[in-house]
Amino acid sequence: MLNALLDNLNYVVAMILFCIGFYTVIMRSNLLKKIIGLTIMQVAVFFFLVSIGYLADGEAPTVIPGAPPAPMVNPLPQAMILTAIVISVSTTALFLSLALKFYEHHGTVDLDKAKEDRQ
């Protein structure tokens, strides 16, 4: 059991991170904490994808003429994650600017407090 966990440590860590992020998004009423939670979720998924392509003692995926081909790290998940990071950054930037707008209207970034104010 423990060995199975240790062998798949990357999966376990990614899932725990994902759950931490999800918990933060759902349970915290502070908008900035929610954004941090979202970022943790995104990082968890990125971590998971990069770890799929990892190979212990793998080389960088470049072919050198003449040299014997060595075991290589899979570059495709890394390329995917670069794209996904760009998306994640723009999402976070947009969300932060919305949070700023929210603050201008309500004087707080706490969703529960903003609700109380209205009543």
Binding site: L38, M41, Q42, I87, F95
Partner: peptide, 24 residues
């Protein structure tokens, strides 16, 4: 509209991460 967009994002961004997780 800002409140509506925040609500939209809070549901839609985790959903996107689920899609990416499934792709992975």
């Amino acid at each position: 509209p800002v409140r509506a967009a925040i609500k939209y994002m809070l549901m839609s961004v985790p959903a996107a991460m689920l899609v990416l997780l499934a792709i992975g």
